[in-house]
Write a protein that binds this DNA or RNA. Sequence first.
DNA 1: GTCTATAAACAGATAGAC
DNA 2: GTCTATCTGTTTATAGAC
Lengths: 211, 211
Amino acid sequence: MTQDDPPTGTRADLIAAGLHLFGQQGFAATPTRALAALAKTNVASIAYHFGGKEGLRLACGAEVARRIGQVAGPPATELPATRRDALDRLEAMLRAMVVFLTQGPQAQDTVAFILRELSEGGPAFDLVYDAFFLPKHRELCALAGMATGQPAEAEETRLLVFSLLGQAVYFRIGQPVICRRMGWTGYSAAETTAIADRLAANLHAILRSQP
Amino acid sequence: MTQDDPPTGTRADLIAAGLHLFGQQGFAATPTRALAALAKTNVASIAYHFGGKEGLRLACGAEVARRIGQVAGPPATELPATRRDALDRLEAMLRAMVVFLTQGPQAQDTVAFILRELSEGGPAFDLVYDAFFLPKHRELCALAGMATGQPAEAEETRLLVFSLLGQAVYFRIGQPVICRRMGWTGYSAAETTAIADRLAANLHAILRSQP
DNA sequence: GTCTATAAACAGATAGAC
DNA sequence: GTCTATCTGTTTATAGAC
């Protein structure tokens, strides 16, 4: 139910509506009527399918965990052979993350929903932390550790990885500020590339100066 | 009224309650009764002093702009003489920002409120952008431009400054994730220092590799 | 499974005494 | 300026027809 097939029909429509509206306006600010209207169904179906508004929120969290499991895949079977390989893999993952955060068709809703749950301390947060954040961060730490020569789970390495991730996440969270200051109307392909190039340059500079 | 003396009495209590609760739970999720209770007054006083809940939100925004104006001060009169000076000033400002974001007695509420308004696209956002974000970012760009030898308002410079800021902001926004992964219970002095050292090291690595 | 109609709780705003 | 009591609209959840 967490890792299996995607939901269908009215359930899927309501979850899609939940991801979109909860992510955009927040949980409390979203009336059930708006959810039902966006999903082209009636308010009662929320209670029928999920037991209530709160149940829909949890179902959205489960769906996010499922989608992310699909995209991220297993945490890479073999470790890279050389420092150079580790650095390349780190850059590839960082670039993929920027693309996922700034572009992404349905990813936009997924990302917004997670960030909402994070800032609201919502119940879906634990789910996503265990299913995604923790394993992904460990994977990045293993690569960063190999690139710097330090232990993967050392405090410095974990903090270093967070500082790298933070740059990417900020461009999603601070989008309104950034776009206004940059004179952009949004993130199209050109802007995403500019951001990814900047962060890749930072990555190399930071890791090169490390040991 | 925007730059003058701080509010007093019931007005101040309500604004403090607004900053705290709006920042923590969001605007829509905060009932007026909770605001009145925290401010140790009655619900009617919100309408009396601010015209309504929305008015209180704006007053909170104005108060944030006022506090920030106090802390940030004027944008530094003279530019640094050498590249080395520019780098030192950048590091000092970055460290001050980390302390402001992670420590800070009343700053915690102030920061949370701004981030809420940012993510909700609230009306207080424009106020804070003009009063703080834009001038501060310009100041940082001037320093970064001097440190890298590029024009202060070049796209690369503006993006570089955002990537530096993003690291700092993320440690505030992602606090729940970060603390769980690091095994921290919160940000005390030791953790703040560790973060600031990490970001200062990143700053030097990035700017050194720039030109 | 889907829908309409309604119930019960709650929201923000306000009138009017003090 | 402060407060209690109340008004009016909206919310979520549910009962019951189809």
